[in-house]
Simulated assay, not measured.
Amino acid sequence: MAQIVAAGAVLWREADGDVEIAVVHRQRYDDWSLPKGKLDEGETVPACAVREIHEETGYACVLGRFLRTVSYVHRGSSKDVHYYSAEAVSGAFVANDEVDELRWVSVASAPALLTYPDDRSVVAEFARLPADLSIVLLVRHAKAGKRSEWSGDDDLRPLSDAGWRQAAALQALLPLWSPTRVHAAPRVRCVSTVSGLAADLGVDVVLEARMSEEGFWPDEDAGLVRLLEIAADEGRVVVSSQGGVIPAVVSALADMGGLRLGEVPCKKGSAWVLAFTRPFGTWSTSDSPSRWPTLVSAHYIASPLPRP
């Protein structure tokens, strides 16, 4: 059976202190659905979601947390549609070949308008958490060759040719979440993985000793608190770290937030999209842990490279 991969989103905006989401009418099928579409050749799933949103609704958007994957059989092919939360940041709807009407509706009223149960399940997942969450993009550094084949100081081990390709792909992928800050463990390979992104954003890479293997393991709690401090700061953030740190950090934060993740993969050049509740008011590490940012969603992107 042929495999079709598609992506879409629950597109949302604030309206009078509440949240509205976009539901579109497709004239070809005479149905009401969430905006979505198939991947183009050489396109990543997140990039497809952003492109399809713009093509069908006219809105530019910023991705948030991953919601869920819907799978079904369509015209003899197996189809997987990956859905994100996405905030509308600019644009306006204009009728087009695919969509002839768009309605902004409350989250509560959307299920009655949507034609398909799968779309209603995606909206239900969106409604489970606040729309506006803090996002940390936790990245493992790109490929840097084998440690055994590098004779110099391991802190200075550079990216390989394959690693630079991964770094370039991350430079294109991560802006879909609109980060404004870039942090990295003080290793050449960690900094190089995100230096292109930092240059594009016009910011410096902030070095984070606690996000290195040597800095994290002597005091794991201090490392976790440091990541929570980073998450609580203003603006979304990219943090480049090491394979000996990321699984432990994600697992511990998931346990603290009551998430069940099971195995925590961490390939070189991969990224975890971590979504946190925002702390109330001004936050500091002296506060009760109940007021700290809480991890409520974690989604793994195995590779930043486009699909072949």
Rank of each mutant, 00 (worst) to 15 (best):
G223K: 06
G17C: 02
D155M: 10
V239F: 10
L253G: 10
G145M: 05
D80K: 11
C190E: 13
D221S: 04
L224Y: 11
D200F: 00
V205C: 12
S160Y: 06
P158A: 08
W150R: 04
R28M: 12
V191H: 13
P175W: 03
E125R: 12
L39F: 09
F93C: 03
L174E: 05
A22K: 10
Y83L: 05
D200C: 03
A185W: 10
V70M: 08
A232H: 09
A15P: 00
A298W: 04
N96W: 11
S195F: 01
A162H: 13
D219K: 02
Q166R: 05
A199K: 13
L176W: 04
P46D: 07
Y59W: 14
Y116K: 09
E55R: 15
G257N: 05
W283G: 01
H54M: 10
L170M: 08
E213F: 00
S106W: 07
A298S: 03
D132L: 04
D18T: 13
S71Y: 04
V237D: 08
V107E: 12
H25W: 14
E101Y: 04
V182R: 11
D153K: 14
S148K: 14
G64L: 04
V10W: 11
K267A: 12
G243N: 07
L274G: 02
I135F: 06
F93W: 07
G281C: 01
V19G: 02
D155C: 08
Y72L: 12
H141V: 00
G243I: 01
H74A: 07
G37K: 11
S240Q: 06
R226Y: 07
A124M: 00
D18S: 14
W292R: 08
D40C: 07
P289S: 05
D30V: 11
D100A: 02
E229R: 08
H82R: 13
A131P: 02
G243Y: 07
G262F: 03
Q171T: 13
D255I: 00
F66L: 02
D233Q: 15
G196S: 06
H82Y: 14
S33D: 15
G58P: 11
V296A: 09
Y72N: 10
P304M: 07
W164H: 14
V5Y: 14
G42E: 09
W12E: 05
I4W: 15
K146I: 00
R226K: 12
R291K: 09
G145E: 04
V182D: 09
W272Q: 07
A185E: 06
K268Y: 01
